[in-house]
Every structure is written in structure tokens, then in C-alpha cells.
Write a protein that binds this DNA or RNA. Structure first.
Ligand SMILES: [Mn+2]
Ligand SMILES: [Mn+2]
Ligand SMILES: [Zn+2]
Ligand SMILES: [Zn+2]
Lengths: 125, 125
DNA sequence: TCATAAACAGTAATTATTCCTACTTATCAA
DNA sequence: TTGATAAGTAGGAATAATTACTGTTTATGA
């Protein structure tokens, strides 16, 4: 995999935010420093970065969100403000403990939660 | 919510299979008894049934899969044969145990796993 | 420096899903 | 039983995210 300046800019943008941006978000932001950046380039790079496990994708929403934090963590989406928040649950433990008994080879897992976030809960009070 | 014969046929089809069918699968099957059934009707009914919590949706794939089994269970998708298999993990327990400390109101959760299923693993041997 | 594979921008195509419109049907009160 | 009405339907158009295609540019390493 080559490292074009566009690819570098996309990766460093994703790594620099906490917000789990979409392809459109990424395009809008990186376009500021690369005015000619096309959306197709964003998608192509996101797929490349995914293949090389430099980023991960969150697909539960209608739109795919991308995450530069590849550590083992889970996601919570607020139904009110739509933000996606990192949480840490011991999912690995229960997958390792209960997984084997089903006989399948589990390569990856993902716990996704939805509800109302702390902030939104307090604001409506 | 009224219960048209189309709606009833769609629901009973979803309830009668283990396969987590897509809208297209459902349309193809129910069309056999309702030749004029339109795909739009399938989607409209699926969304109605979802709102009334009579079915659930699995959105991790590119295509939405539907599930007539609304009991608390998890899903595993085989990367080889693409089948979606029901599994039971004590996810509820860890969400109840670890959830509250983050301060968000968790309404729903979903553990989704991918890998190679038992059958495909044995076939390639 | 040069050859070449990879990446790029721009645009067209694809595809799942939703929306729209005119018509049909179930429900319920008169 | 009959209308009025709200919900449902079929069929087709529209939407929107993502991917594919094409001709041009660029990174890389011999
Ligand atoms: Mn994250
Ligand atoms: Mn299931
Ligand atoms: Zn919120
Ligand atoms: Zn399989």
C-alpha cells in the first residue's frame, strides 16, 4: 500500500477525532486541505485502510461510521443526539468463555448499544 | 394496526423460518401465495412490524435481515456461507452489571459475531 | 531517470430502501 | 346495510450511500 498525501490526511483525520465520522464527514473535513479531494477517493481509501486493519467500521447505522481507535472497545449511540460514544465492556471475556461451546470459529465480535446519553438525559430534566 | 392478509403472510413467513431473511427473500417467498405482492408493501409491513416489536432487524450486513424470534439472543454470521446463526450469550448480564457506571440510559444492545461456522469448518477439512 | 503499478478526480452506475399516487379494503358509527 | 374514513396496496419514481469506470497523475524502487 502506497502512502499518498490524501491517504495520510484521511487516516490522520480519523485518528485525530473521537466522533466516529462518516465518509461524508471525512470528505468535508479533509477537503479543506485538499480542495480537489473526491468522495470516491475517500471511499477507496477507507476500504484500503479497513483491509489493512488501520481503522474499523461501525455498520449498525444506515450510514457507515469509521473509527481510528482499533483497540477492543464497544459503541453506544444516543437516539437523541446521534453521537456514538466509546464504552468498555468485558465482551472478550464472555466470547472466549461461552463461544467455544457452539463449535464455530469466532473471528470478530461487536457489541453495539443504543439509548439516551448522559448529556441528553440531563438536558431534558 | 390492521391485519391485512399480506401482513399476516409476511409475519407468518418470518416466524416460520430460521434463516433471518432479507426483504427480497421475503418478497420472493410470500409472492408465491400473493402474486401481486409488491416489494414496497414488504418494506412497509416490515417497518410496521418492527415498530410494534413483532420482529427485529439485523443491520450489520449491507442488507437488512429480519428475525421473527424476538427473544434475547445473539447472531453469528459465517463469512464463508453467509448464513446467520442464533447463539445465546449472557450479554444482558454484563450490560446490567457494567452499563450503569457510564451514566447513559441503555435501551437496547446487540452482540454480533463473524467467523467460520461449524459446517464450513468441517467441509474444508 | 524511468517504468510501472497504484492512486487520483470526475462521473456514471448500482442497489437497498423510501416516497408518491391513485386505487382498494377493513372498520365503525349512523 | 350503508357510507365515511383511515389504513393498506401495487406499481413506479425518487433518494442516497456506495462502488465501478475512465483517462490522467504520482509514488516507488530498480
Ligand atoms: Mn470507537
Ligand atoms: Mn435470530
Ligand atoms: Zn445524546
Ligand atoms: Zn458457513
Amino acid at each position: 500500500m502506497r502512502f499518498s498525501s490524501q491517504r495520510e490526511a484521511i487516516l490522520s483525520y480519523i485518528r485525530g477525532v473521537q466522533s466516529h465520522p462518516t465518509a461524508l464527514d471525512i470528505h468535508a473535513s479533509v477537503k479543506k486541505s485538499f480542495p480537489s479531494l473526491s468522495l470516491g477517493t475517500v471511499y477507496r481509501n477507507l476500504n484500503q485502510l479497513l483491509e489493512h486493519h488501520l481503522i474499523t467500521a461501525i455498520k449498525q447505522d444506515e450510514v457507515v461510521h469509521y473509527d481510528g481507535n482499533i483497540s477492543d472497545h464497544q459503541h453506544f449511540r444516543c437516539k437523541n443526539c446521534d453521537s456514538i460514544i466509546d464504552l468498555e465492556f468485558p465482551v472478550r471475556d464472555i466470547v472466549l468463555e461461552h463461544g467455544p461451546r457452539f463449535g464455530h470459529e469466532i473471528h470478530a465480535y461487536e457489541l453495539y448499544m443504543t439509548g439516551i446519553c448522559k448529556n441528553c438525559k440531563n438536558e431534558t430534566k
